[in-house]
């Protein structure tokens, strides 16, 4: 496969995100604009200008009408996808590290940083998916994380729960309506922050990536750890691929540690693991720095990764990717084919 290199940012990437149809790709970096790209050829649709600080996160609503972004300038901003127009700004006391729309795009959650005497919080905003509508100023819900600040969060299926990953390596489940804490489970090593949380397509389970060099597949309802993927480097991001049963992990030594570690160069590769068998099945190299974020194309045809090197690499999978099956998978397919023939 020939990756497409997108160099629309001058600084390290913080998040890449596909829209629901997989034709648009949004990227944020520590410079001050968001880029929108056409995923099939890497053409830049435009940039969203207005933030005054590093942008940590972006999310697009399911209809690709609006996007929300969270930034170190202590704001969440809402933009019209088509024109790049700023629709609304919400101010917070601290930086916003993660935003995510719920399944129908009517609610937006934001994770705010713990700093300057303010505790880390998860806020919920009501959104009208219409560029012309007046957005409300009010926060519907504010969850304060007293023990350990949340680093990432997301909406489960039917917006039933808010799942948050914390700095101490635990995962919490909050009620999506009231904000009550239901469970808090230690899944990753104590003290190693959870760096990413991404859902499967129907949002019944999710994958977390952590600095403890592992990624875990966890159910949304019971917070049961289904699978563990062990890597040899701290992880910054993890994604679940549709169509094929794989997960993609991204990480690498932090840039500041590279010179102090003796490990052979890099580890700046995207790692592919089989989702069920938990085995590593391949790597894709290319970045010159740690991978900060990976995203799987919802159509299952490719993936994108953003690195500390400032590049986004968009990959379209080859035939070999789709053909690969474990022996048991192949047997099952053969059996099904035989039954279908009868």
């Amino acid at each position: 496969m020939r990756p497409i290199l997108l160099s629309g940012h001058e600084r390290a990437l913080t998040q890449v995100k596909y829209n629901r149809e997989g034709d648009l790709l949004f990227s944020t970096a520590k410079d001050q604009h968001i880029c929108a790209w056409f995923a099939h050829n890497g053409e830049r649709l435009g940039t969203y200008q207005g933030h005054q600080g590093a942008i940590w996160t972006v999310d697009v609503d399911p209809t690709s009408t609006i996007i929300a972004s969270g930034s170190a300038d202590n704001t969440i901003r809402l933009w019209e996808v088509k024109t790049g127009k700023l629709l609304k700004t919400w101010d917070f006391p601290t930086a916003v590290k993660r935003v995510e729309f719920n399944e129908d795009g009517t609610k937006l959650l934001g994770v705010t940083e713990k700093r300057m005497g303010h505790l880390g919080t998860i806020v919920v905003l009501d959104i009208k998916v219409d560029p012309d509508a007046e957005q409300s100023d009010e926060k519907v819900l504010t969850i304060v994380c007293e023990e350990s600040k949340a680093t990432v969060a997301g909406w489960s299926y039917l917006s039933k729960y808010i799942i948050a990953g914390h700095e101490d390596g635990s995962v919490s489940q909050y009620d999506g309506k009231t904000g009550d804490l239901i469970y808090n489970v230690n899944v990753h090593e104590l003290g190693s922050p959870i760096t990413d949380l991404q859902w499967n397509q129907d949002r019944t389970y999710f994958i977390t990536a952590s600095k403890d060099k592992s990624a875990k597949l966890i159910t949304a309802k019971e917070l049961e750890v289904l699978k563990t993927y062990v890597a040899d480097t701290p992880l910054n991001s993890a994604a679940i691929t549709p169509k094929k049963e794989y997960v993609i992990l991204g990480g690498g030594q932090a840039a500041m540690d590279v010179t102090t570690t003796s490990a052979r160069q890099g580890k700046f590769e995207a790692r592919f693991y089989h989702k069920i068998f938990e085995e590593e099945i391949g790597r894709v190299r290319g970045h010159f720095g740690p991978l900060n974020t990976v995203a799987a194309d919802p159509t299952g045809k490719g993936y994108a990764s953003g690195g500390e090197d400032g590049y986004v690499r968009v990959h379209q999978f080859d035939k070999g990717y789709f053909d690969f099956n474990y022996e048991v998978e192949r047997e099952r397919l053969n059996r099904l084919a035989a039954q279908g023939g009868k």
């Binding site: 496969m1 020939r2 990756p3 497409i4 290199l5 997108l6 160099s7 629309g8 790209w37 050829n41 890497g42 053409e43 830049r44 794989y246 592919f272 089989h274 099945i281 391949g282 790597r283 894709v284 190299r285 290319g286 690499r313 990959h315 999978f317 080859d318 070999g320 990717y321 690969f324």
Partner: peptide
């Protein structure tokens, strides 16, 4: 802003 990278052979195994 957009360029094409070198070919990468990726076949899961």
């Amino acid at each position: 802003t957009t360029s094409v990278g070198e070919n990468i052979i990726f076949r899961p195994s």
